[in-house]
Design a protein around this nucleic acid. Structure first.
Length: 482
RNA sequence: GGCGGCGUAGCCAAAUGGCUAAGGCGACGGUCUGCAAAACCGUUAUUCGGCGGUUCAAUUCCGCCCGCCGCCUCCA
């Protein structure tokens, strides 16, 4: 298994700190708003990486924090006339609504800054103890020039950084490159008691403290969006390695941005798409498929046409899955006797599994892995529709492979590790009964060659979002659209 | 200015120093169907931004150029 490591700028063979185990820390959202598509990409990418480690048999400890103490939260709370803590708690809840929709699994631990103030203070004291930080007027700053190797992750020299560095009003840095570990409380801001007076943590320190608490030093994977490389992750390294003298994390993984019409999605450009809006427009399966449709390090351009293509692609998968289920449940012909000729599917399943793993082993190439999923779909469709020999055992193996791929890619909701497609139930027995009545009427009309009536029923139902498909045996219906 | 990335068919998007350049969407033709839908079969890049170089051989390695994007400031 090879992973591109931002720290070295190369793909490297993955070798965990402790054999058979993986410790991962991923920077989670600052909870001051609903999450947007960019957040969603990071979530889905790292959820998929985690799932793949699990697939490979590793025991994974996955930590994703919530930054619930931050300037943005304080400002937003002030605007809304809310208490910052209440506001942050609200958006933690809203985060889970969106993450669940995208089939992102819960982390093993979701630590919050507000629950780790003692750890943060202890870490700052350790850094001061090593002579790498100083107190100034109730603030504490990290002295960047005293830490050897600053800039290694982002490949920047101190001189390059010097040019862009600035000092905000009221800051008491000795050097413009220094950054705050602790900020003295201003009136009306949340605060905690500390050796430097009342205040709150700076932006970067919480991740160092929480990662150390839950994963120790030299843990395996640290991830986040590419915009976190500098300064956030660079500063985390400086703090953590400065405090302990030990390596912080072994593999640094960063996902690329979402762009909107080739431009970065950002608040200042006003082109931010919230997951909450998008899940109203598209099935979440399509959103997840889209988010994994190119390599995680490349930019991904959001575009309604691409989303429509993803919706259709998901329907293709769903149709195949539904057909497979029908055969296996015995609803459709006795699987086992039908067909003749070669059993091609049987022969090809192992190869597909091998290709899938090879794709994911190569720096989590989900685009290629998806291609294998579609190849599996084609093979199953051919087997089921053409007059090929097929048997229950092979079809079960094919279904197991679908389930295995989905346990990694997470496109469809799961139950006990298997794909769980909602049965397409209508709201209530009345609707269900009415639909069945209409289908029966249409069947009679077709028998009487009254195709005008038959088509009127089918077209009318389509308008209502129900698609009918005539098959030799019966009529199949499904809820289309969204 | 410094650092990094990208440019592959109508669109999205992988891979690869030589073997048919994946897969999805779309389009076209066919099979099936009362007609559809779904599915299947076939067609849809003699070519991988441009120009040079290395090589027996380059889309793939190197150099230059053009175009696009990101980071260097809060941001996934």
């Amino acid at each position: 298994m090879e992973i591109f490591n931002t720290l070295t700028g190369r793909k490297e063979r993955f070798c965990p700190r402790d054999p058979g185990r993986v410790g991962m820390y991923v920077c989670g959202p600052t909870t001051y708003n609903f999450i947007h598509l960019g957040n969603a990409r990071a979530l889905v990418v790292f959820d998929t990486i985690r799932r793949y480690f699990l697939h490979k048999g590793y025991r994974v400890l996955f930590i994703q924090n919530f930054t619930d103490v931050d300037d943005k939260i304080i400002n937003r709370a002030r605007e809304e006339g809310m208490d910052p803590h209440t506001l942050a708690a609200k958006y933690v809840d809203e985060y889970f609504v969106d993450a669940d929709a995208l089939n992102v699994r819960r982390a093993d631990v979701h630590p919050k800054v507000s629950d780790h103030i003692p750890e943060i203070i202890a870490l700052i004291e350790a850094i001061i103890g090593r002579g790498l930080a100083y107190e100034a007027g109730g603030d504490v700053y990290f002295a960047v020039r005293k830490f050897d190797g600053y800039g290694r992750l982002s490949r920047r020299s101190l001189d390059d950084l010097q040019a862009g560095a600035r000092v905000e009003v009221g800051e008491q840095k000795k050097d413009p490159l220094d950054f705050a570990l602790w900020k003295a409380a201003k009136p009306g801001e949340p605060w905690w008691e500390s050796p430097w007076g009342r205040g709150r943590p700076g932006w970067h320190i919480e991740c160092s403290a929480m990662a150390a608490k839950h994963l120790g030093t030299n843990f395996d994977v640290h991830g986040g969006g590419a915009d976190l490389i500098f300064p956030h992750h660079e500063n985390e390294i400086a703090q953590s390695e400065g405090a302990t003298g030990m390596p912080f994390a072994r593999y640094w993984i960063h996902n690329g941005f979402i762009t909107i019409r080739e431009e970065k999605m950002s608040k200042s450009l006003g082109n931010v798409f919230l997951v909450r809006e998008l899940t109203r427009l598209y099935p979440p399966e399509a959103l997840r498929l889209f988010l994994l449709s190119n390599h995680y390090r490349n930019p991904l351009d959001y575009d309604p046409e691409a989303m429509e293509a993803a919706v259709r692609a998901v329907n293709r998968l769903k149709t195949c899955l539904g057909l497979l289920r029908e055969f296996l449940s015995g609803e459709r012909s006795a699987a086992g006797e039908t067909g003749r000729g070669e059993n091609r599917l049987e022969a090809v399943l192992d190869e597909l599994q091998g290709r899938f793993e090879a794709a994911m082993d190569d720096d989590f190439n989900t685009a290629l892995a998806q291609a294998v999923l579609f190849d599996l779909t084609s093979e199953v469709n051919t087997c089921l529709h053409q007059n090929e020999r097929r048997d229950r055992e092979t079809l079960e193996k094919a279904r197991d492979l679908f389930d295995a791929f989905n346990r990694v890619l997470g496109i469809f909701p799961e139950k006990n590790g298997r794909i769980a497609l909602e049965a397409g139930a209508l709201g209530g027995d009345l609707s269900q009964g009415l639909l069945e009545l209409l289908i029966a009427l249409r069947r009679d009309a077709r028998r009487n060659k009254d195709f005008a009536t038959a088509d009127r029923i089918r077209d009318g139902l389509r308008e209502l979002g129900i698609t009918l498909e005539d098959t030799p045996q019966d009529v199949r219906w499904k809820i289309s659209g969204r």
